[in-house]
């Protein structure tokens, strides 16, 4: 079975057996290793991607259901020389430690800011509540949003 979809703005096709998750196809077939597999149950958000405008756990989405879909992964945002402002703020505020949750946090955080450029702390915490971070205690991640908000008002 062949699935055609758009990933990070580029048309892609993947040949699948039928039961693979979107995460499996992204990582093992398309070589997009940024999305991480930490629980494969939709509990931790390490595999968060934007699927047709919604943040989803790619581990819970059947690749076969993605025909014609538009998928954005962490690889779409920023490069080493040109980070997205949220990535830069995460770097500056030490919102990254081991980094395994980080791609999911980046995807969720940027999508939140696209939908709501000035989120309150409660809105940020709610939006991130599906992305587990075991290292930082979330402080550095929350301060990354604070930093962006301050930069935005300057």
């Amino acid at each position: 079975m062949i699935v055609s979809l758009t990933i990070n703005g580029e048309p892609k096709t993947a040949t699948i057996g039928g039961f693979e998750s979107l995460l499996r196809v992204l990582r093992d077939d398309l070589g997009l290793l940024g999305s991480k597999n930490a629980c494969e149950q939709g509990e931790c958000g390490s595999c968060s991607v934007v699927l047709d405008g919604e943040v989803v756990c790619a581990c819970l989405v059947m690749a076969a259901d993605c025909e014609g879909s538009d998928v954005t992964t962490v690889e779409a945002y920023g490069t080493g020389d040109d980070l997205h402002p949220f990535q830069q703020a995460m770097l500056d505020e030490h919102g990254v430690q081991c980094g395994f949750c980080t791609p999911g946090i980046v995807v969720t955080g940027i999508r939140l800011l696209e939908e709501n450029p000035t989120p309150t702390e409660d809105e940020i915490r709610e939006a991130l509540s599906g992305n587990i971070c075991r290292c930082t205690g979330y402080g550095g991640i929350l301060r990354a949003f604070d930093r962006l908000a301050k930069e935005g008002t300057e």
């Binding site: 290793l33 940024g34 992964t73 080493g80 770097l91 980094g99 791609p103």
Partner: peptide, 13 residues
């Protein structure tokens, strides 16, 4: 800042 921060933030680590 961490020297491995950018690769971790861009999915390249």
């Amino acid at each position: 800042v961490r020297p491995d921060g950018i690769p971790k933030l861009t999915g390249n680590f």
